[in-house]
């Protein structure tokens, strides 16, 4: 099947399936968080899975999107437009910062991006006249329920948010799949495997890295805007180090080489802590245990590992 169509159908099917089985608003709320994380983690897949660059600062870009929809409406910019302004700002910043720091690779790059994330966190914390400081700020009301009401569909706010984030995540996944199978995508994946060979074929490696960095920053910013709008409240913690680590962890756990890894990683690491509330104080032990076990048994991540398994079973079935 055409990979674009496949990505569209799989993601949409998951969005619809969630809506059909969720019994209460609480589930729809967690579902929205899963789709928001899917968006930012899909950006990480483009950066880490396609090009092979590790960023520990993407929470900074996420926060740029979040604060864009928090701050700009106070200056008369509608929330929807603020989302695009935030995404553009994150992309531009990534391009400007990307040139010098993407010369680094491996853990050197990880540390440089970590510094970038911390800088953004610091600005958000200190500039309280604009951002409300460490206490955060209220995000002006925006409710997708009204959009759905315009076309005659009545639903609760949590449901409306679930559908909106699910649809945006679907678009994000489809765009990333398109990119992966396109001329640019091949150039990016070539840089991942051998930058010497890629450049010998005419790929401008530095430019390819900057482009991937900017794309992933835009994904993070869009996710940040959606989270801020859905929560109606935002604090500088969204730019925090742990959030950056969380994004990379979701990508690696699900399988950073494929967008489906982004969906699975976001699903597990968003839903599991909710499921584990019944073990209360042991939550983190179980969560950590699941992550360690997964990575030891399937170092390429869940989706690629399960894909290999299915492939092997199919081969065995054929040879019989």
């Amino acid at each position: 099947m055409n990979p674009t169509l496949k990505a569209l159908l799989i993601t949409l099917a998951l969005v619809v399936a969630g809506a059909l089985i969720f019994p209460s608003s609480y589930y729809f709320r967690v579902g929205s968080l899963i789709w928001i994380n899917t968006i930012s983690v899909t950006g990480i897949v483009v950066l880490l899975g396609y090009v092979g660059l590790v960023s520990l600062g993407h929470a900074g870009f996420f926060a740029i999107g979040a604060y864009a929809v928090a701050v700009l409406p106070g200056y008369g910019v509608p929330s929807g437009a603020a989302l695009f302004v935030g995404a553009a700002a994150a992309g531009l910043l990534a391009m400007v910062i990307g040139r010098p720091i993407l010369r680094l690779s491996g853990y050197y790059l990880a540390i440089a991006t970590l510094g970038l994330g911390m800088l953004i966190w610091m600005v958000l914390t200190k500039e309280s006249w604009l951002t409300g400081g460490p206490d955060g700020m209220v995000v002006a009301g925006f409710n997708p329920r009204h959009w759905f009401a315009l076309v005659g569909i009545k639903m609760k706010s949590t449901e409306a948010w679930y559908w909106l984030t699910g649809l945006v995540a679907t678009i994000g996944v489809v765009l990333a799949v398109n990119l992966g199978n396109s001329p640019w995508g091949r150039a990016l994946r070539a840089v991942h495997d051998s930058d010497v060979a890629a450049s010998s074929l005419g790929v401008d490696v530095a430019r390819a890295k900057v482009v991937a960095f900017a794309i992933s920053a835009v994904y993070a910013a869009v996710a940040g805007s959606l989270l801020a709008l859905a929560n109606g409240y935002i604090t500088p913690d969204t730019a925090g180090f742990m959030h950056s680590v969380e994004m990379v962890t979701m990508a690696v756990l699900g399988g950073a080489t494929t967008v489906y890894g982004a969906i699975v990683g976001s699903l597990i690491l968003t839903a599991l802590p909710q499921v584990l509330t019944f073990v209360a104080e042991y939550e983190h032990i179980v969560l950590g245990g699941v992550m360690v076990a997964t990575m030891v048994a399937m170092r390429r991540g869940l989706v690629p590992a399960l894909g290999d398994l299915a492939h092997r079973l199919a081969m065995r079935g054929r040879s019989k």
Binding site: R186, R189, A190, H192, D193, S194, V196, A197, S200, T257
Partner: peptide, 10 residues
């Protein structure tokens, strides 16, 4: 390349 620079994941 003498020491092969292919793209193994492709």
């Amino acid at each position: 390349f003498q020491n092969l620079q292919i793209f193994p994941q492709m």
